[in-house]
Amino acid sequence: MKKVEAIIRHFKLEDIKTSLIECGVEGMTVTEVKGFGRQKGHTEMYRGNEYAIDFIPKVKVEVVIRDELLRPVIDKIIERAQTGQIGDGKIFVTDLVDAVRIRTGETGVDAV
């Protein structure tokens, strides 16, 4: 099992949600987050003027998937989230030790 965390532009969420469901992802957690990456988050250019922004609003999507879904999920996120501009976001992948469905007590892949 893998946990995929994607930090994306907030307005890309609907697109990504739809395509991940098509991919076979059965659940996701979405969080409103703020932060910065390589762009340092300090300024934003708009029609030539600069605005000070400490942290840029983004959305964090978390999904837990079977190993074989990892590649299609990442491909889909990139396909939908990419604009080619700075600030498109990041994807983090971690190995997951276990998962438990609280209602039934099922564990492992069955709980996902």
């Binding site: 409103e32 708009y46 003027n49 922004i53 609003p57």
Partner: peptide
């Protein structure tokens, strides 16, 4: 009304206001 939402709304407000005032900040 999280700070996240407030920031996005404020940012849109600034941008739209600049359009309406001709970027004369």
């Amino acid at each position: 009304l999280t700070p996240w939402k407030r920031d996005l709304l404020t940012s849109l407000f600034y941008h739209a206001r600049e359009e309406l005032t001709g970027h004369l900040s």
